[in-house]
Amino acid sequence: MEGLTEGLFMYMVAAIAILVALGLAVFRALAGPTVFDRALAANAVGTGAIMLLAIVGFLTGRPEFLDIGILYALLNIIATLAVLKFFRYGDLGHAGEEPKD
């Protein structure tokens, strides 16, 4: 029982570290000078959300949250690429750059 609580203590430390990292990333997302800083910070926030989901799932004894983590990991990369494409072409349905000749 004592070992279990100490394991939970280490999960708590990891959760606090991830929360601090999330705070720093949110600051960068709010204060970033360019839109790429904000996109990078949004990516970091997504990663932090996945790790926080996993840690809190183990902390509360319900590791089924990991499925939601997989979903977030799959959504995160798509969201980043979509935001970058939107800010490059101004349209998500753009076909990309035309061939040069």
Binding site: A39, L40, L66, I77, T80, L81
Partner: peptide
Amino acid sequence: ARLIIILAIMLYSGPIATHALAQAALHA
């Protein structure tokens, strides 16, 4: 297995996102 799937997705998607971000920033 779920944790390993999450780790694999992150290890693949991280360089892709970073590469796209750097290319978009340089293009802009």
